[in-house]
Design a protein around this nucleic acid. Structure first.
Length: 435
DNA sequence: GTAGGGTTAG
């Protein structure tokens, strides 16, 4: 059955411009009705949308793939690429195995996506590295870059370096990835050294270094780099600013924080949820609950972290009522599932206000109703609350019976409470335990 | 049709 070439090219351009799964399914339906569903060119476009677009549907992509009689390298690559964005490593690997069995030749794209998919599992990544070597891709810049990323992500800077050194050609990605390898290993001296040697530095390289300095506690250095970056004529983007806001927060530098906030507004970055979350945290750490609140209120979308950040901000600034009200609003009205950090924030509010009963209620409900295991921080928070309230025996019993190992910190809190409440006997009991 | 940098926790 032959088809009007105009119709085919029309459907092709439709599938190229596809913007939603609804549209995609309509096109797919038409293909089926017209018996055009084996047209690989059109199918490839549909598959790409379903597999990699943020509004795609990986399941649907996989189904499309399965109904393709002879998927070529592009089909495999695209589906592996889609899975690389998820946590699944088994799917990309089984696709690769399938690919090898069906004698579909992998190309540089295959290894790129495959290595990305496996970057959380070093063992698998190393096996892919072997295949890269065996199949002759060890001189390909993109593939080698993905290998550097693999070893960087798994904290093996020296192997990353080895891959880098053996590359016949390096691009800015190779260099940045090496900077990242040292940053991940918290070796900022080496990171800075590589950075200084770079023939050209782009926004990613600067961002990696800024974020790195922030991570290891060199906050001021991070801010200095941010200014140098702009002097060098490189435009910071959302991710850069994320690190910069975090550095301002850690420095409790309200002035710098506010100027960065202005920058965010000017550049139109405030759509980014993570960035707003970082701002909430920054204002909270700088002691400006009102400003933290203003950011939270204006957010068009909120994530779990947004709620956690604002609840903690309220908790730490003596707005316990507000913190618990937000906790209710979050879980009941907004329908956001709390996590361990949420409960810690809400319990911190109770600790701040001395609401022991409410604290207990939260600790119990997190485990029983929400199935979130309490950590030493939750128990420590609760024990501290009890100790402060003078319920020393209860605090002691809690620490002794909790299912996680206690820390010196927890005992110290109880010790000082014993001193305040004049309980010498328990003081001695604890000291003997610690010795 | 390649890639690398990413927020919360007294």
């Amino acid at each position: 059955m032959s088809h009007d070439p105009n119709l085919v090219s029309h459907l092709l351009s439709l599938s190229q411009r596809c913007t939603s799964m609804r549209e995609l399914k309509t096109i797919h339906g038409r293909l089926l009705r017209l018996n055009l569903h084996l047209n690989t060119l059109i199918l490839a476009k549909l598959l790409r949308f379903a597999a990699v677009s943020p509004s795609g549907d990986l399941h649907y992509a996989h189904t499309l793939f399965c109904h393709t009689p002879h998927p070529d390298t592009f089909f495999y690559n695209t589906l592996i690429r889609g899975y690389a964005k998820t946590a699944s490593t088994s799917q990309p690997i089984s696709l690769f195995t399938h690919m090898r069995r069906s004698s579909t030749p992998p190309d540089e794209f295959t290894f790129n996506f495959l290595l990305n998919a496996c970057s959380r599992m070093l063992k698998l990544g190393e096996e892919i590295h072997g295949q890269v070597f065996k199949l002759g891709f060890s001189r390909n810049t993109h593939v080698q870059n993905a290998l550097i990323h693999l070893y960087a992500a798994n904290r093996f800077p020296e192997i990353a370096r080895k891959v880098f050194d053996e590359m016949p050609q390096r691009d800015v990605v190779s260099w940045s990835s090496l900077v990242v390898a040292h940053v991940k290993a918290r070796d900022l001296d080496s990171a800075k050294k590589v950075f200084d040697e770079m023939p050209e530095r782009d926004v990613v390289a600067w961002t990696a270094l800024i974020t790195g300095f922030d991570r290891v506690g060199h906050f001021a250095e991070a801010l200095v780099l941010f200014w140098k970056m702009q002097e060098a004529g490189v435009q910071p983007d959302e991710v850069t600013i994320l690190g910069v806001v975090s550095a301002c927060a850690n420095l409790q530098d309200l002035e710098a924080g506010m100027s960065v906030h202005c920058y965010i507004e000017e550049r139109g970055f405030s759509w980014m949820v993570a960035l707003c979350n970082a701002l909430i945290d920054m204002y909270s750490k700088c002691g400006c609950l009102e400003k933290a609140w203003a950011v939270f209120e204006r957010m068009p979308r909120r994530s779990l972290v947004s709620w956690n950040s604002i609840i903690l901000a309220c908790a730490l600034h003596g707005a316990g009522e507000e913190a618990l009200r937000l906790f209710q609003e979050m879980t009941k009205e907004a329908g956001v599932r709390p996590d361990g950090a949420t409960f810690l924030a809400a319990m911190s509010a109770c600790a701040h206000e001395g609401w022991v009963v409410e604290g207990w209620r939260l600790l119990e409900s997190m485990e029983r109703e929400h199935g979130i295991p309490a950590t030493i921080e939750h128990y420590g928070c609760m024990a501290g609350m009890l100790a402060h309230a003078g319920q020393l025996e209860a605090a002691y019993d809690l620490i002794m019976s909790m299912p996680v190992p206690s820390t010196e910190e927890v005992w110290r809190v109880l010790l000082s409470a014993c001193k305040i409440h004049g309980n010498a006997a328990m003081r001695e009991r604890i000291v003997n335990r610690l010795l």
